[in-house]
Design a protein around this nucleic acid. Sequence first.
DNA 1: GCACATTATGGTCCAGAGATCATATTTTGT
DNA 2: ACAAAATATGATCTCTGGACCATAATGTGC
Lengths: 83, 83
Amino acid sequence: MDQLARTPKDIGHAIRRARKQQKLSQQELATRSGIWQETISKIENGSSGARLETIFDLCAALDLEIVIAKRSQSNTDFLEDTL
Amino acid sequence: MDQLARTPKDIGHAIRRARKQQKLSQQELATRSGIWQETISKIENGSSGARLETIFDLCAALDLEIVIAKRSQSNTDFLEDTL
DNA sequence: GCACATTATGGTCCAGAGATCATATTTTGT
DNA sequence: ACAAAATATGATCTCTGGACCATAATGTGC
């Protein structure tokens, strides 16, 4: 359920996933978050490194949180992208 | 032990914390991560939104990982910055 | 197949991140 | 208090993310 992210692409996937789970269109998310639909599209597709703030905005709008943890407590739940 | 981050400042704190725990200087972290000492200083002090990629680089060098999680499972371990 | 909604692409403009340099300030050991 | 190390500041330059516009491509229901 939690999603490990090592690259911008991973973040994009996590965001898309959450958005779809909440049945929001990019446009709706755009309105909620203040980030443009076009930008969301690019971020979800991992087209290169977004800014932290942008990600925080999107996460806030999607009720996601970002956690920084020490690595290696055997994280196996990685990269089973469903959508 | 895990650190919730809502703002770039939070990320900066988490990074500084981890770096100090590993007894690294900014300069050493800079060498490891490929991010300049000056830039690390700014990020640790939260002087505005870094890029995702930069954070990933720093996290990798510090053995930290970024996890995206659904909010609210009663996260109480927040904001007890020790350093 | 069509209309409509959704998502992606592509261009311009502006602001700011990060490289890189020098230098100032702070911290720390002795 | 001093020297040395560590951190911060600050300036310039380049590059790119994101706002913003239009439009293309794709998906989805009927």
